[in-house]
Design a protein around this nucleic acid. Sequence first.
RNA 1: GCGCCUGUAGCUCAGCAGGAUAGAGCAACUGCCUUCUAAGCAGUAGGCCGGGAGUUCGAGUCUCUCCAGGCGCGCCA
Length: 586
Amino acid sequence: MKLVTQVLTETVAGAFEKCGYEKVFGDVLVSDRLDLCQFQCNGSFACAKQFRKAPFIIAGEVVKRLKENSIFKTVEAVSPGFINMTLTDEYLLGVLLQIAQDRHIGIPQIENPETIILDYGGPNVAKPLHIGHLRSAIIGEALKRLARATGRKVISDIHLGDWGLQIGLVIAELEQRNPTWKCFCADFDAQADTVAGLNVETLNEIYPFASKKSKTDELFKQKADRVTYELQNGRAGYIALWKEIMRVSIADLKKNYESLNVDFDLWYGESDAEKYVGALVDTLGGKGLLRESEGAMVVDIAEEADTAPIPPVIIKKTDNSNIYATTDLATIIQRQKDFDPDEMWYVVDKRQSLHFTQVFRCAKKAGLVPENTKLEHLGFGTMNGSDGKPYKTRDGGVMRLSDLLETIINAAYEKISASAYASQTDQKEVARKIGIAAIKFGDLSNHRAKDYIFDIDKFLSFEGKTGTYLLYTITRINSILKKVNVSSDTPVSFSDIYTDAERSLILTIILSGEAFQHAVNEKAPNYVCENAYQIAAVFSTFYHDNYIVSETDEAKKATWIALCILTRKLLLKHLDILGIEAVESM
RNA sequence: GCGCCUGUAGCUCAGCAGGAUAGAGCAACUGCCUUCUAAGCAGUAGGCCGGGAGUUCGAGUCUCUCCAGGCGCGCCA
């Protein structure tokens, strides 16, 4: 269905045209002065300039035409030239009913859905998830759901870091510790020989250890580089061990992402792009883009308009092994071949923006994707501690994602245990949902590209503008529906608007479509958060002012219940898009 | 050095397709649980939107400049 502002824009644009002006001046916005009106049009000012006439006069002429329209309760020209509009209650109720009956509850659908590959998550195998991985997962998941909710086709890919030096480091360290393992023998036979079993704990411990060691121990670093190269070139023993690392690590990752309610269509990794590296090098070579520089093979991507020197992309390192630009480019070839997408979005730390500039330019230059394919890096900011520096645990280490979740979920559990409303059976599950909601909403309500201060106490309080508040609002609605014995999927109807609080709620619900539109255009889930909070807050006022269960006027009561049902449905939709699960009671 | 990003209330942040009185939450202070969950509601107080200049009828929002902070700048990802 059409957005209300869109319908009004057409109406007002028509009025401008009838008055002899141009339609472009008819843009209608949600009023920023809700005390004066619901919608406004400021086109008279620009129109005044062009037609050399006072804005107030023009607004007056347009308003005269608009008054012929019965959808307005009031429509007036206000000095110095605003056009202020307020819709009739009948009209609002009509739109509300449309939303209630719309398959997409008023979320605008795109006409020509594009196919988008969404690359987020990006964890490294053999490396425990820490809070640095949180944002990519949360933001990427929300963007995926948001894009899908507005009709787009999205294919999500976790893009595992499973093929670079980090694997070489782990294998090198394993080899030093267990030199007798069969997989390290030159004559390892993948058919006959088996690999020693690994577990997550070992892997989690070994990577930080090896990484640190490589910085001080030059010989070890050289060994890791050699292992990386040999792995990428198919040494059987290393491949077999790598497969074991992958098996253990992916199982653990799946568990972690599942607990965050994050899931991927594709569990591809850098290693899956390996088979396209040959094609990449051929293409680049064939187009004469590849050149040797300081022992490495590179592609120049600097452009004349650049305000800063942009270094070339390294395709092959001095030792002929691949680097992340290589696999990213090879991955683009793979994605183009498999899905022919219209867009590729990368939800990756904003500090990598130079890297993506290089990769995207190289991809375009080499014709790896059609000219009009959009390649976009959606960078996000760092999660800092209250000291403004990257978040650390008390002892200065990097905080494990699982530890963070546990802390918050435990706090939620304590609160739940004290509640009179929580059912005894699923308190653990309810606590988990509340904890995840708190973390996700806290993250997503910040602007994506900005760094933000992560204050764990703020999350533990479960008060104010939080994910908890949204879940709480829904449980209140659930409670009412239970008391009046009405199912949440009962078809709704609305007889009238009885109170101001109600009108505010209705208007907020109606304007949700605009919020979703804005969110998807800007690829900014924080608009969804803001809108969800608005709905919940306005509902809470309405809830506080009017007692629904005890209402004796049947028509009024039925309308209010209908409002509860619709509010609940819409809030659930917001939460779903944010990747947050609701609870029945808490 | 060059480039990118950020600077809004005591704190954490929205707002940045330019519009009429700059919004939340937390913290502080007042009220409200014998009617639907007080994880709530209502209210008070708190701002030269980093400084300066410009564009505009109109700037927190656009441009320039200065200041402060963060980040990035070839073989890690």
